[in-house]
């Protein structure tokens, strides 16, 4: 049970960190200054969530474990983030859509966790939910702008939708540790799908061509896309090069 709780906490933490690591590449390179600042706010929020979760995981694991040993010294196969968050930033449309899918999912998930009997997870979820509500609003507004904006932005968003949709199924497919904890995410799908569908419709995008899309699985159990190795190479460079130092 303790192992399942640890794995589950790491799944949440890894997903938040990898999304933060991906988003942080926009800092200084955004399409307009105000949005550079906005996406960086979101980056800081999800990295903050990751830190709270890793700190809790370190406590569960005990010994010399810290948030940094968990983030910096575990390998690809130990990382449990969902595949969605490790997908490349692509253009602004792909980054926005990835954020939108994930934030809407986090909203359902954290809402569920606020009622969880594990007080620490419930507290982290309660705090994070405030941030996530804003992330949902911000990203859905951008989905609308891009879908409805110009023919070019519409086409780009359609491409992003095709690229990312196969990674949305995994969010709702229970891993062993979720089953062990009685935290099956499948029931979260209904609300998530209804939000996503209505926003995409308003943005004049259709999910119809994707109804029979084959869903990729694996991230939550440590079988990732080829992207993750490169992300960790960058992320972990300093700790791997200079082991055992304080920074």
């Amino acid at each position: 049970m303790q192992q399942a709780l640890l794995d589950y906490t790491l799944y949440l933490a890894d997903s938040a960190l990898i999304l933060g690591q991906r988003n942080s590449a926009w800092c200084g390179h955004g399409p307009v200054l105000e949005q550079d600042i906005a996406i960086t706010n979101i980056t800081l929020d999800v990295i903050g969530q990751a830190r709270s979760l890793y700190q809790y995981a370190a406590q569960l694991k005990g010994g010399e474990t810290t948030e940094d040993t968990l983030a910096y010294l575990r390998n690809e196969r130990d990382y449990k983030n969902c595949l969605l968050v490790e997908q490349p930033n692509g253009d602004w449309g792909q980054t926005i859509l990835r954020q939108f899918f994930f934030s809407c999912f986090q909203r359902e998930l954290y809402t569920q966790l606020t009622k969880e009997k594990d007080a620490t997870l419930a507290a982290i979820a309660t705090k994070s939910l405030k941030e996530v509500n804003y992330h949902c609003r911000w990203s859905s507004e951008w989905v609308l702008r891009l879908g409805d904006g110009t023919p070019e932005s519409h086409t780009r968003l359609v491409t992003a939708l095709e690229n990312l949709w196969p990674y949305t199924g995994e969010l709702f497919k229970a891993a062993d540790y979720e089953i062990a904890l009685g935290l099956d995410p499948a029931p979260l799908h209904k609300n998530w799908f209804s939000t996503v569908q209505s926003t995409l419709e308003e943005a004049t995008l259709s999910l119809a061509p994707l109804t029979s899309c084959y869903m990729q699985l694996g991230g939550k159990t440590g079988v990732h896309s080829e992207e993750l190795g490169y992300i960790l190479t960058d992320l972990q460079y300093m700790q791997r090069t200079y082991p055992g130092c304080d920074w």
Binding site: Q35, R145, L146, G149, T150, E152
Partner: peptide, 11 residues
């Protein structure tokens, strides 16, 4: 970022 700014304006 040009297409993004144009899309926001068009919307």
């Amino acid at each position: 970022g040009a297409w993004v700014r144009e899309a926001a304006q068009a919307h």
